[in-house]
């Protein structure tokens, strides 16, 4: 986990890209902006354009949602994004192909896939991890795979150098925190609200109390997501932790540019990337 990618060629142990990026940001004295896009939303070409444009717009790491029919932890905005993606033909394999294409032009920006377990099981957990590592995925967030059920995937991920990034919730109590943290690598994803994605805004004071509580138990970077919507909130989250994940607010912006049938218009990718730029400016200004 301590290797750093100083050259532009892909590093062998792909998980190290995440550690390298957080180390570089720490040296800069700032937190990370981690924008989210849903694969194939609203179509493959547009989501590819968004993915390719994200590093230039200021993304430090990128989280790609893998569409699933039953996204239990997601609010309406990301549910609809997933439905559009599925309608456009998204599969887990297709999402991996997007990462392969992205990696042809960017060997440094860490890419994290966020999704649900069933498509992974259907693909075959071991084969998925091998393929994900091969195309240049760095970390996995499998929403419905708590540490207690991770046996099916975690050993393969570890062997392939893929980080398993875990959610810690406000309801994760002191007894449970070490269980979750011990099963985490890459970074810790703090869920800022009790709820689903994109439905509430995080309470700044609660965050300032919560992050040190987790920090006491782990050396991993901690990023805040669920309820980070505005540049101000992203700046604050990146200041009190090591990074801000912004998902629903970006998807909401993007979806406003779609036509009546949910199809992309000429301004779709740009609208989302403009918002990434605004978020990045706030995160970079929040030292």
């Amino acid at each position: 986990m301590s290797a750093t990618a100083t050259e532009s060629r892909p590093v062998a142990a792909t998980g190290s890209r995440i550690a390298a990026r957080f180390a570089a940001l720490r040296a800069e004295g700032r937190g990370a902006l981690i924008p989210f896009l849903e694969a194939y939303d609203p179509d493959r070409a547009t989501s590819m354009e968004i993915l390719r444009g994200m590093p230039g717009a200021g993304a430090d790491l990128i989280e790609i949602g893998v569409p699933f029919t039953d996204p239990m932890a997601d609010g309406p905005i990301i549910q609809l994004a997933g439905q559009r993606g599925l309608k456009a033909g998204a599969t887990l394999g297709g999402t991996l192909e997007m990462v392969r294409e992205f990696r042809a032009g960017d060997s440094e920006t860490p890419v994290i896939l966020m999704g649900y377990l069933n498509p992974v099981l259907s693909y075959g957990a071991e084969r998925f991890v091998a393929d994900a590592a091969a195309v240049g995925v760095d970390g996995l967030i499998v929403v419905d795979m708590p540490p207690e059920e991770a046996e099916v995937l975690a050993p393969h991920a570890q062997a392939a150098g893929l980080d398993i990034i875990r959610l810690v919730a406000p309801t994760t109590d002191a007894a449970r925190l070490p269980v979750v943290l011990n099963a985490s690598s890459g970074f810790v994803y703090y869920v800022a609200i009790t709820g689903i994605t994109g439905t509430r805004s995080a309470d700044p004071e609660a965050l300032e109390a919560a992050i040190p509580r987790i920090r006491a138990h782990t050396d991993l970077p901690i990023c805040i997501g669920f309820g980070v919507r505005t540049p101000e909130q992203a700046g604050h989250a990146a200041r009190v932790s090591d990074g801000a994940v912004v998902a629903s607010a970006l998807i909401e912006t993007m979806s406003r540019t779609l036509d009546g049938e949910g199809r992309a218009t000429p301004g779709t990718a740009q609208a989302m990337l403009d918002q990434v730029r605004a978020l990045a400016a706030a995160v970079r200004g929040a030292r």
């Binding site: 239990m72 419905d144 207690e148 059920e149 109590d173 449970r176 869920v191 709820g195």
Partner: peptide
């Protein structure tokens, strides 16, 4: 103890839900 019947059952939920079902 893990809620399994053979290989079936279990607790495949998001961390946000885990403390509740415990």
């Amino acid at each position: 103890a893990a809620g399994k019947f053979g290989g079936f059952g279990g607790r495949y939920v998001a961390e946000t839900l885990m403390p509740l079902i415990l």
